[in-house]
Amino acid sequence: MTVTASSLGAAHYARALGGIVGREVLRFVHQRERFLSALVRPLLWLFVFAAGFRAALGIAITPPYETYIPYEVYIAPGLVGMIQLFNGMQSSLSMVYDREMGSMRMLLVSPLPRWFLLTAKLLAGTAVSILQVYAFLAIAWIYGVQAPPLGYVTLLPALVVSGLMLGALGMLLSSAIRQLENFAGVMNFVIFPTFFLSTALYPLWKMQEAGELLYTICAVNPFSQAVELIRHALYMKLNAEALGWTVLALAVFLGGAIYGYNPARGFLARRGAGAE
């Protein structure tokens, strides 16, 4: 019996996508520390930071909220975004390390177009981030931070878009950064600015009080758009503007990543040179 892969067409793509997502989820399940740290980080923010700031920060009524809300409720969607931000950086930047680089090579020599392989890898990372998000939201629910039950359903498509966008950002960075000594550099120069200069912790108008420049940066930060998309979806509302900007950022980052991993451009060549 000869089954040649290239003759199978759509079935081949479907199987490959299933394989890539399945592998990522299996790896995630096996790496309990990764799961735990993905949960502990936002929970610390929720239990400690938000609780402490509750008294200091009053949040006026701001969409999508219809009443005054405690600070924990405001910050929860931002922490959901934070989970996806970390996951997107980690899953892509782990490629920079040799061991993951090996499996990236394995992926790239499979007989499928590169754009498909990279997109499938992003989807796989997004699937993992969504598992983390729902685990976090479940604990937050028990803690008393609760959104309307249906909101947890309408949240899902928003998480797919925001997860893809943040994963694509990580993938783009991994193709552009030649060498990375450790994760700390990314923390300082990408994750922290992205997170703090956004609407994750404070609403935009609060930022405007602090200064026009800060306000502008927060407003154009794609991460803000993703957080607002998540925030509205959790309350069964569609923020079309946030969706538009998030999709645009996704398109730009993904396009850049596909370009970055183009074999003719030789990103892998530079890295491969180290092995020779």
């Binding site: 089954v3 892969a5 290239s6 199978l8 079935a11 081949h12 793509y13 199987r15 490959a16 299933g18 394989g19 890539i20 399945g22 592998r23 299996l26 790896r27 096996h30 790496q31 040799d98 061991r99 680089m101 090996g102 499996s103 090579r105 394995m106 992926l107 020599v109 499979s110 007989p111 499928l112 092995a275």
Partner: peptide, 29 residues
């Protein structure tokens, strides 16, 4: 292809590693 660097997923079983690769090549399960 067999690369110089190891490319297996250490946390997965032998079977899971092989099936992942087979999926990339579009082989039915």
């Amino acid at each position: 292809v067999v690369f110089q660097q190891p490319t297996l997923d250490l946390d997965l079983t032998v079977r899971q590693n092989l099936l992942y690769f087979a999926a990339l090549h579009g082989l039915p399960r």
